[in-house]
Amino acid sequence: MIIDAKHAFEKEQEHALIDRCINGCQRSFADLFTRYEKKVYALSLRLSADPSAAEDITQEVFVQVWNKLAQFQGQSKFSTWLYSVTSNIAISYLRKQKNWLQRVVSSEDVGMESVEVDACPMLGGLDKLIVRLPERARLVFVLHAVEGYRHEEIATMLNMAVGSSKSQYHRARQLMQEWYENE
């Protein structure tokens, strides 16, 4: 009962904060940023496997959120909407990073090298394996296993067939299992 009341109060507070941001209050937006910055960064880092790119993506997410906040209908949780914006911006960012040759031959980026992973103190546990996955397998794994998207949704987001999303998920699991068991 107390927990429910606390959640309701927090939700109410967040709605008021969002309303102030929609009305152009930058100070309230700074509060919203502080509340979600590290969460958005965590998701951006898992999707991009690049600490510096994840920082750029996080900034881009909040600039877009400032511009599009009025479009947030309040039907879903704000965090759900925010992570969906983050995923889409990260995917778009990764697409833009590819040169024309990579686009033509559909070659994909490999993930971080294990040496790079070891030099990254912010990564621990499963994140150390996720960031080593090749791009498509990593995106599908994070969106499906961590963020809870269905393969149909992922297929639309990544512009691939549903079957490809499933096979990339399987590939991600296989690679991680191999690394886990052999290292």
């Binding site: 910055e37 960064y41 965590a42 880092l45 600490p51 996080t58 912010m122 546990g125 994140d127 961590v146």
Partner: peptide
């Protein structure tokens, strides 16, 4: 999995 990760620079 940690819900939050701290970036290295001020964003």
């Amino acid at each position: 999995l940690p819900d939050e990760i701290t970036p290295t620079r001020e964003l």
